[in-house]
């Protein structure tokens, strides 16, 4: 997106993104709503999962559906959702690369099936292996500056700390941690998970995130297409505010109007 101030593209691993919103493809009321939401969001990167094929029948390929409807404008970011170990995640990533012909991977290694919270040890191990295997690794991780730095040191192309539990819509539970990660990270920070509504997405960008990745906030909105457009605007607004630099906060009032020339003095 080129705004009125100038070009503000995001670069990850040498690839430029005009949109700073990455969108998931799961849980929409139907396929047409998903496609309309992707289009309305303006996203240039859509996530997908890798799963065993149904051996009962071969269905239409999601990749063909996406490319057909969106004309190849949206890149594909496969994930390793559901993997519990580095070994599973590495094989899933390698299968994703083979299936989609992309080295990009949203790396998820979870340590708890109910909380979907990252398993840091396994995540670091998988990141190292996949980076060494030539992948562009975007790890979903804790909102922990130390873990984020370790991931970047291992060669992650971006880090993707959670705002709150996946699918919770609870917003950014520890904004100070996210702001600290953004201030210190040598690689782009993508807020992943927890976004519930547009103000959460704007907040993430105001805290300094380079992009936002969300899914449920759009797919489970009453009107997903309208929410996708709202998220597009929120991410752009938050980014604008961050680059503009907000005013300092004050504890007391400071009049905006001049104090000279008041009548009745």
């Amino acid at each position: 997106m080129t705004d009125t101030i100038g070009n503000d593209t995001l670069a990850i691993a040498g690839r430029d993104f005009g949109s700073r919103l990455f969108l998931g493809t799961a849980g929409y009321p139907n396929q047409q709503v998903m496609l309309d939401a992707l289009a309305a969001s303006g996203t240039e990167l859509a996530t997908m999962a890798i799963r065993r094929i149904s051996l009962d029948g071969y269905a239409e390929s999601l990749v063909d559906v996406l490319n057909g409807a969106l004309g190849g404008r949206v890149g594909l970011l496969p994930n390793t959702a559901g993997c519990l170990t580095a070994k599973e995640a590495v094989l899933t990533a390698q299968l994703a690369r083979e299936a989609l012909d992309t080295p990009w991977i949203k790396l998820e290694v979870i340590g708890d099936r109910e909380l979907l919270y990252p398993d840091v040890e396994e995540l670091l191990r998988a990141t190292e292996e996949l980076v060494n295997d030539g992948f562009v690794v975007l790890p979903y991780c804790n909102d922990d500056p130390v873990t984020c730095r370790k991931l970047a040191d291992l060669g992650a192309a971006a880090v993707m700390p959670l705002g709150a539990f996946i699918g919770s819509g609870l917003g950014i539970r520890n904004p100070h941690a996210i702001e600290t990660i953004c201030a210190r990270s040598p690689v782009p920070v993508v807020l992943d998970a927890g976004i519930g509504t547009a103000s959460d997405a704007a907040r993430a960008m105001e805290l300094g995130c380079s992009a936002v990745l969300l899914n449920t906030a759009v797919s489970k909105a009453r009107d997903p297409v309208r929410m996708a457009a709202a998220m597009r605007d929120a991410v752009a607004a938050g980014r604008g505010a961050f680059t503009a630099g907000r005013m300092p906060m004050r504890a007391f009032a400071e009049p905006s109007s001049p104090q000279l020339g008041l009548i009745g003095g």
Binding site: G24, T25, G27, M48, R51, I53, L62, L76
Partner: peptide, 8 residues
């Protein structure tokens, strides 16, 4: 045998 499906 796997393929991409909808995911977040």
């Amino acid at each position: 045998i796997v393929r991409p499906i909808q995911g977040g």
